[in-house]
């Protein structure tokens, strides 16, 4: 990454942080309903991987902690926020909500709320890409706890057997909802679990975006060159509870303090300040600009957008007027 790239990356990660923090406020204000799973602490994961991938060209799929992954693919943050507000202008027209952001135009294939559900879907997207001779790859971001689902094993097996162009990114934040990984999972290092499928798997620091980027570059190149699936484990930490309904009482304060010292944004900021690329004042101005953008454009758009019409409740259940439903085009 060039210094200019790093500055952009810093801004984008800070944007992701502020965006999610603003979601938190909107949730507390009851502007956002349902479940809300926030990303602060994990920003370097999506950012670093998507720096190495081709956003908008490669296909990305993930779980319910999906706002930032969508934005990294190119989704308009205004549409993402409007979706959280349940508006017709939302990325899923207010039908999806926080856990189901979609932006197919930018090849963001969605957020899914069944833990482990996207594993086989990602393999299927890879299968289709392979059949079509595309140079795009399929990237699946999920948490460590998803690896305790059968779909993890079934999908790794199929991806290897059929040599599919899929990159599985495991954001290991050490907790499955409120249960610490060593209390639920026999093998804590997730990359080791992949060895049973003869797929290359590595574990790196998920808090250092440059480390993530370097590891992801190797991973993406491997998959894109037709060598088959790859598994990348990123060691990370989420600052908030699993979702907004989680009191987060199960974590030791010492542990939280330790991880807060490895904040992905602060680490990169300090590195850039030390290298003389930016000043702390530059950073503050950057932050102010982001907050202004979020308030003045993004929240404003979500607030002012219309809700979906109840008359269209049943729209999108099935295809409109599919000729084959009536027995073929007549």
């Amino acid at each position: 990454m060039t210094p200019a790239d790093k500055k952009r990356v810093l801004r984008e990660m800070l944007f992701a942080r502020r965006f999610e923090e603003r979601c938190y406020e909107a949730y507390v204000e009851r502007k956002i309903g349902g479940f809300l799973h926030l990303y602060p602490g994990q920003e370097a994961c999506a950012q670093g991987v998507m720096e190495a991938a081709r956003p908008g060209h490669d296909y990305v799929i993930t779980g319910y902690r999906d706002h930032i992954h969508a934005i990294k693919c190119g989704a308009d943050p205004k549409a993402v926020m409007a979706e959280l507000y349940g508006k017709e202008t939302g990325s899923s027209k207010g039908r999806g909500g926080s856990m189901h952001i979609f932006d197919v135009e930018h090849h963001f294939m969605g957020g899914y709320a069944l833990v482990g559900g996207p594993f086989p879907l990602a393999a299927g997207i890879a299968k289709a890409l392979k059949m079509k001779g595309s140079d795009a790859i399929s990237i699946c971001f999920l948490g460590d706890a998803a690896n305790n689902q059968g779909t993890f094993h079934e999908s790794l097996n199929m991806a290897k057997v059929w040599n599919l162009p899929v990159l599985y990114v495991c954001e290991n934040n050490l907790y499955g909802i409120g249960t610490r990984i060593d209390r639920s999972t026999a093998v804590v290092d997730q990359y080791k679990r992949v060895s049973g499928y003869d797929i290359p798997a590595v574990q790196v620091d998920g808090q250092d975006v440059e480390v993530v980027y370097q590891a992801a570059k190797i991973a993406v190149d491997h998959v894109r060159s037709g060598k088959g699936p790859y598994f990348l484990e990123l060691m990370t930490y989420r600052y908030r509870g699993h979702s907004m309904s989680d009191s987060n009482a199960y974590r030791a304060k010492d542990e939280e303090r330790m991880w807060s010292k490895r904040d992905p944004i602060i680490m990169l900021r300090d590195r850039l300040v030390e290298a003389g690329e930016i000043s702390l004042d530059d950073y503050k101005a950057m932050d102010a600009g982001i907050l202004h953008q979020i308030e003045g454009e993004i929240i404003k758009f979500a607030e002012e957008s219309p809700e979906p019409s109840v008359n269209e409740l049943e729209k999108y259940v099935l295809a409109d007027n599919d000729p084959y439903v009536r027995g073929g085009a007549r």
Binding site: Y59, I61, M109, G117, F119, P120, L121, A122, A123, G124, I125, A126, K127, A128, L129, M131, K132, S138, G150, T151, E154, S155, N157, M158
Partner: peptide, 15 residues
């Protein structure tokens, strides 16, 4: 569940 999900994923983009 795995192969059905794989087929569904493939169907998202034209298969």
């Amino acid at each position: 569940n795995g192969f059905t999900g794989l087929a569904i994923g493939a169907s998202f983009i034209g298969v």
